[in-house]
Amino acid sequence: MKFVVCVKQVPDTTEVEVDPETGTIIREGVPSVLNAFDEFALNVAVQLKETLEEDVEITALSMGPPQAKEALTKCLAIGADSAILLTDRVFAGADTWATAVTLSRAIKKLGGADVIFCGQEASDGNTAQVGPEVAAHLGIPQLTFVSEIEKIEDKNIICKKETDEGFLRTRCPLPVVIACMPTPGFLPKIPNMREIIKGKRKPYEEWTFKDIGGKEEDYGLEGSESVVVRTYSPPPKGEGIIIDDEPEVAVQKLMDYFEKEGIL
């Protein structure tokens, strides 16, 4: 069985600041990390592999600049069996559509996969579009907001999908794209030194657009359907009010406030 896990290297959002003039993220000196949603997806894939009797090969796949190799090296340490970085100037400036085109063509070149895992979203763009678009390009089903995979049996996957009301236990035939949503308090596997060293020895390849075929204009900025008109930080919301009192007093104060403001 073949799993592909799509991952992205993102700026460490705990340290990101936005340039107030240009509205863009200041990337200089900000460390890059493996997108936490993708790390969760990889952890889910690795755990699933451990429960399956048949052989599973996990390929970590990323599109990005050459330094995104670091994120893939981490995937190999966590448990991916091989990794491919799609890196080419032609891919630069891609929106979610062009990214999904690139990833899905690479997956086709790999001969497809039984399960394609991705994170629900990337912490830098938060669009949550790439996974579903990959499914669309490949013409296969998708399950989003997946927090847990129960099992794979008879070429079907059974998993738990978070909804606003609770969760859905869903069965879906393979092949499928699974967009994973980390459960609260989830602690990703910390690769140890031995796994890191072993990971470095696993197969790693870099592919350019020539490797996956198609025309240059399918990719990157040219292949993108969306146009960014402006990015900006919303103005600060102003100071909130904190009522720190015994419950009865606090509730009364809150009611008084609602009344004063005409909310009630």
Partner: peptide, 22 residues
């Protein structure tokens, strides 16, 4: 300053720090 660390060293560091945080 991580720029003079190898890829493996960066991961060694990250894993130890993650482990220590927990």
């Amino acid at each position: 300053d991580e720029r003079d660390l190898t890829e493996e060293q960066k991961l060694f560091k990250e894993s130890i720090l993650d482990w220590a945080e927990r």
